[in-house]
Design a protein around this nucleic acid. Structure first.
Length: 552
RNA sequence: GCGCCCGUAGCUCAGUGGAUAGAGCGUCGGACUUCUAAUCCGAGGGUCGGGGGUUCGAAUCCCUCCGGGCGCGCCA
């Protein structure tokens, strides 16, 4: 990247200053560059003189000294000192032509980085218990998890997307019993959904599906046996339904792990044994406790209840080990804000098991509060009050739905009004971006129809001198740093903002610069810029899990 | 009470140490004989919740207060 080249030049000047004794090079500052907001501030700027001046004199004077000592080069047209001591660099236009060429060359690594090279990351998201259909809250997690995973891959990590099913415990028991009641009702028998059971209509649908599949053979079975059968058959249906809903939303996982498999394989007991051996447990009132309070948590936590049943938390212990045993360097978890209180105990487990805390990262995705035409919807799976992801996809489409989730930081709570989402779907900025892409495709189709080929490598890019062409090329350049920062900060919204800006820059270019003209060379250059823009828009959208249509 | 997150334009939100704080929607005014008007141009709109501090420089970091969400189970 150009910033590396510039940093080397400035570092060269700083070293001269150090050698001359003008500047102490202790703790030599990192030379960071940024793109100034204002054009007159040049192409790239650095605040290194301001940083270096801390306690060592006048920043402007140091900046001047740096300028005087810059090594000879053919990149910097001129360097200026500005404001309190910024160094502004005006570059030769060729650096932008390089951006256009690299953006279209799949082997150039444009928008790709080697930050995570050789490292593997497991990203677990959406995970839930299979007691209800996938809802819009999970949609937010799915959109974010997919995009963060895509971004991590873009910066070089090997990424595994994982889903964890909590298919055990009291909620699952209740779910099975609820289906059983509906199953009996289906055959005209008297039965009640348990007090705390699941009352959604989908439970009736599942029971009917099961009735069609197995007939009435469980109507006079032993109640416990019937509940067990209904639980297993029902869960299988929920799992499949979730897979379908998520796939339809564009989300697919590399690994699905069942909590029950950790019990069955002995992993759970092995995890507990590790904690016992490390003296991290004790028994009290018949329950097994984990000494999480010694590792930063508020209190100790129960691993095995006094009735002998392991908690969900005990399975977490086994699961962390299981993931590390599979060779991942880093584990990322996307959790809902309602689980953030569990983070300290979870990190305590990581440490107690002997893993470095920094290898585990829990990202908290803030709440999605549901509204319907301004009225708060108190979502409850048990009461059957949910807004399904399928419904959202039916009403607004995958791209608009994803984009809505991805324009916000995960730290920001999201108010989601399904009626408003439907109403505003056509206004969704995602279409603005897609439109720019489709428009470019249209130009390229027309060019091809006229027998004009859009090659980039031999295009006379020096003809791109219009202010709008310049602005577009500069915006293309930003993609590289946007991808890197979005990946590092787990912040897909930066990519969403970026593609909007890029589409806007293209619109300006489209307005001001006719692409297909009598001037063959200019047409050639502008087509190359179109190809570069199309490539980057498509890449940005794909990082968000959004399609880049060729026609709209 | 304690912990985490949030408070930025009328609304929904970006921006977390740099130069004159942005976008979309909404409002008002304008532009289609044109490579796609799902577009473009212009206008209006801000005590960055309040106060204090650190810094050459704070929406951004620290303290404090106010307001909102979530959590503080041998539930998941």
């Amino acid at each position: 990247m150009i910033t590396k080249t510039l940093a080397d030049l400035v570092t060269g000047a700083l070293e001269k200053l150090g050698a001359e004794g003008v500047l102490s090079m202790d703790g030599a500052p990192e030379v960071a560059f940024e793109r100034p907001k204002r054009r007159e501030h040049g192409d790239w700027a650095t605040n290194v003189a301001l940083v270096a001046a801390k306690g060592q004199g006048n920043p402007r004077a140091i900046a001047e000294a740096i300028v005087e000592r810059l090594p000879d080069n053919d990149i910097i047209d001129r360097a200026e000192v500005a404001g309190p001591g910024f160094l502004n660099f005006h570059l030769a236009p060729s650096w932008l032509h390089d951006v256009v060429r690299r953006a279209t060359d799949p082997y150039s690594g444009f928008g790709r980085h080697r930050l995570g090279e050789g490292q593997s990351i497991n990203v677990e998201y959406v995970s839930s218990n299979p007691t209800g259909p996938v809802n819009v809250v999970s949609g937010r997690h799915a959109a974010v998890g997919d995009s963060v995973s895509n971004l991590l891959e873009a910066v070089g990590y090997s990424v595994t997307r994982e889903f964890y099913w909590n298919d055990m415990g009291r909620q699952i028991e209740l779910f099975g019993a609820s289906i059983a009641a509906r199953y009996l009702q289906h055959f005209g028998l008297e039965a009640d959904v348990p007090e705390d059971g699941y009352r959604g209509d989908y439970v009736i649908e599942i029971a009917q599906g099961i009735a069609r599949e197995v007939g009435d053979k469980y109507t006079d079975a032993d109640p416990a046996e019937r509940d067990r059968a209904m639980r297993e058959l029902g869960m299988a249906r929920m799992l499949e339904a979730a897979r379908v809903s998520l796939a339809r939303f564009g989300t697919s996982f590399g690994v699905w792990t069942l909590e029950s498999s950790l019990h069955e394989s002995g992993a759970l007991e092995a995890g507990l044994e590790t904690l016992r051996r490390g003296d991290w447990t004790y028994e009290e009132e018949g329950a097994l406790f984990f000494k999480s309070s010694e590792l930063g948590d508020d209190k100790d936590r129960v691993l095995v209840r006094s009735n002998g049943q392991p908690t969900y938390f005990a399975a977490d212990v086994a699961y962390v080990r299981h993931k590390f045993e599979r060779g991942f360097d880093t584990l990322i978890y996307l959790w809902g804000a309602d689980h953030h209180g569990s983070v300290p105990r979870f990190m305590a487990v990581v440490e107690a098991l002997g893993f470095e805390r920094k290898r585990v990262e829990v990202e908290i995705v803030q709440m999605v509060s549901l509204l319907r035409a301004g009225e708060a919807v108190r979502a409850s799976k048990r009461a059957g009050v949910i807004v399904r992801l399928d419904e959202l996809v039916d009403e607004v489409g995958v791209d608009a739905a994803r984009y809505t989730f991805l324009t916000r930081s995960i730290d920001a709570p999201l108010e989601f009004d399904i009626e408003l989402a439907k109403e505003q779907a056509p206004e969704n900025p995602v279409f603005y971006v897609q439109y720019a892409h489709a428009r470019i495709c249209s130009i390229l189709r027309r060019a091809a129809g006229e027998g004009v080929e859009a090659t980039v490598s031999d295009a006379p890019l020096e003809l791109l001198t219009h202010i709008s062409e310049d602005a577009l090329m500069r915006k293309l350049d930003s993609f590289e740093v946007v991808v890197l920062e979005a990946a590092q900060r787990r912040a897909p919204q930066r990519v969403a903002r970026y593609v909007e800006e890029l589409a806007s820059a293209f619109s300006g270019f489209y307005r001001d610069c006719q692409v297909l003209t009598e001037d063959e060379r200019l047409t050639h250059a502008r087509l190359a810029l179109c190809v570069a823009t199309k490539t980057v828009i498509a890449d940005g959208l794909h990082l968000l899990g959004v399609s880049a249509p060729e026609r709209m």
